[in-house]
Lab assay of single mutants.
Amino acid sequence: KTEWPELVGKSVEEAKKVILQDKPEAQIIVLPVGTIVTMEYRIDRVRLFVDKLDNIAQVPRVG
């Protein structure tokens, strides 16, 4: 699995749990929505963009 659209609106902790069940090797990085990030693709990275309430604001994707 490479993306988790069902996690939008969920808490960071809930999202981490689901992603690590699907992809145990994932390196999860939590960032505020709108953060500028590098464009290199990494198969072991999932970025979680969160709103001010620490809920997932964008679809988490591998990369």
Rank of each mutant, 00 (worst) to 15 (best):
G9C: 04
G9F: 02
K17P: 05
L7P: 00
G9L: 01
V59I: 11
V62H: 06
E3I: 08
E14N: 06
G34I: 00
L31T: 11
R61G: 08
T2Y: 10
E13F: 08
V59S: 05
V12H: 04
V50I: 08
T38R: 11
L20N: 10
V18L: 10
L31I: 15
I56T: 01
N55T: 13
D22W: 05
E40V: 05
T35N: 10
D44E: 11
A15M: 02
N55S: 08
K17F: 08
Y41T: 13
Q58S: 12
S11G: 11
E40C: 06
V37G: 14
R61L: 07
I19G: 01
K16C: 05
K10P: 01
L53Y: 13
L20R: 11
I28T: 06
V37K: 12
K1C: 06
Q21S: 11
Q21G: 12
Y41C: 13
D44R: 05
A15S: 05
R47G: 12
K16W: 05
D44F: 04
Q27H: 09
P5N: 00
V8R: 03
I19N: 03
I43L: 13
P32H: 06
E13T: 11
M39T: 14
I29P: 03
P5V: 03
E25W: 08
L7V: 09
I19Q: 01
L7I: 04
A15H: 00
R42T: 14
K1L: 04
I28H: 00
N55W: 02
P24H: 03
V62W: 12
N55A: 09
V37I: 11
V30M: 05
L20Q: 11
R45T: 15
P32D: 07
A57L: 06
K17H: 06
D54V: 05
Q27I: 09
Y41N: 14
E14K: 07
P32F: 03
P24K: 06
R42V: 14
T2A: 07
E14L: 11
T38M: 08
I43S: 14
R61D: 03
L53E: 13
T35E: 14
V12F: 04
V46C: 07
M39A: 13
E13S: 12
R61T: 12
V37L: 09
D51W: 01
V62D: 04
L53K: 14
V30S: 05
E25P: 02
K1S: 06
L53D: 14
E6Q: 06
V50G: 01
A57H: 04
L48D: 01
A57N: 05
E25L: 09
M39E: 15
R45W: 13
V33I: 11
F49C: 05
V59Y: 02
L31V: 14
G9P: 01
F49R: 02
W4H: 00
K17G: 07
V8K: 03
P32W: 00
R42W: 10
V46S: 03
R45H: 15
T38L: 06
G63W: 11
V50T: 10
R45N: 15
N55L: 12
L7E: 00
E13N: 11
E13D: 10
G34M: 04
L31E: 13
G34S: 11
Q21W: 07
V46K: 02
G63R: 08
K10H: 08
L31Y: 10
S11Q: 08
V50C: 07
L48V: 08
V33G: 03
T2F: 10
S11A: 08
V37P: 14
T38Y: 06
V50H: 06
P32V: 01
K16T: 07
G63K: 13
Y41W: 10
R45M: 15
M39L: 11
V30H: 00
E6V: 01
G34A: 06
K16I: 05
L31F: 09
K23L: 15
Q21Y: 06
D54W: 09
Q21C: 11
V37D: 15
D44T: 07
I36W: 07
E14H: 14
E6L: 04
I43R: 13
K23C: 15
L20P: 02
P60Q: 01
T38Q: 12
D54L: 09
E14R: 08
K1P: 02
K16G: 03
L7Q: 03
D22T: 07
I56Y: 00
P60G: 01
D51S: 02
V8A: 04
Y41F: 10
T2G: 09
Q58T: 11
E40R: 07
M39S: 15
Q27Y: 06
V50L: 06
I36H: 15
V30Q: 04
G63C: 12
P60F: 00
T38N: 12
A57W: 06
W4N: 01
K23R: 13
G63S: 14
D44W: 04
R47I: 15
Y41R: 12
L48S: 03
D54Q: 15
K23T: 07
E25I: 02
E3V: 07
F49Q: 03
V62R: 03
I56L: 05
F49K: 00
P24G: 04
V50N: 03
G63V: 09
G34R: 06
L20C: 07
E6Y: 03
P60D: 00
I56Q: 04
K10G: 05
T38P: 14
L53C: 14
E6K: 05
E40Q: 06
R61C: 12
L48I: 06
D22V: 05
V33Y: 11
K23V: 13
K1D: 05
A15D: 02
K23H: 11
Q58A: 12
E14M: 08
T38W: 05
L48T: 03
I56V: 15
G9D: 02
R47Q: 14
F49N: 02
I28S: 02
G9Q: 01
V33F: 07
R45D: 15
K16A: 08
D22F: 05
I43G: 11
E6T: 05
D44P: 11
V12N: 01
K52N: 14
E13I: 08
Y41Q: 14
T38F: 06
V50R: 04
R47W: 14
L53A: 14
D51E: 05
V46Q: 00
P32I: 04
Y41I: 08
K10Q: 09
V8T: 03
P5F: 00
E14F: 13
P24A: 05
V37H: 13
R47V: 15
I36E: 15
D51F: 01
V59A: 07
V37A: 14
V30R: 03
L48K: 02
G63H: 10
T35W: 05
V18D: 04
V8W: 01
Q21I: 09
V46F: 05
V62F: 08
K52A: 14
G63P: 10
R61Y: 13
A15F: 02
S11N: 15
Q27F: 06
Q58Y: 11
I43P: 15
V59M: 06
L7T: 04
D44Q: 08
K16P: 00
D44S: 09
V37E: 15
V59C: 10
L20K: 11
T2K: 13
R45K: 14
A26M: 12
E40H: 09
K10V: 12
M39D: 15
A26P: 02
Q21K: 12
P24W: 04
E14C: 10
D44Y: 06
A15K: 02
L7W: 00
E3H: 07
V37R: 13
E14Y: 13
V30F: 01
E13L: 10
A57G: 05
E25S: 12
I29H: 09
D51M: 00
P5L: 03
E25M: 09
L48M: 06
E14Q: 11
D51N: 08
L20G: 09
A15W: 01
V12G: 02
W4R: 01
I28F: 15
D54P: 03
E40W: 02
D51C: 00
A26L: 12
E6C: 03
T35Y: 04
L48G: 01
P32S: 07
L48P: 01
I43D: 15
P24S: 04
A57D: 05
I29Q: 13
D51R: 00
A26G: 05
G9I: 00
I56E: 02
M39N: 15
T38E: 14
V33S: 06
R61N: 08
D44C: 07
R42C: 13
W4A: 01
E6W: 04
P32A: 06
R47N: 15
I19F: 00
P24R: 04
I19H: 00
V18H: 09
K23Q: 12
N55P: 02
A15P: 00
R47K: 10
Q58R: 13
I43C: 10
Q58M: 15
L53Q: 15
V30D: 02
V12K: 07
A15L: 02
W4V: 01
K1A: 04
P5T: 03
F49A: 04
Q27N: 10
A26E: 02
V33Q: 10
F49S: 04
R47H: 14
L53G: 12
T2E: 11
I43H: 13
T35C: 09
E14I: 12
G34L: 03
I56H: 03
E3M: 06
K1R: 09
A57K: 07
V59H: 00
K10D: 04
V12E: 03
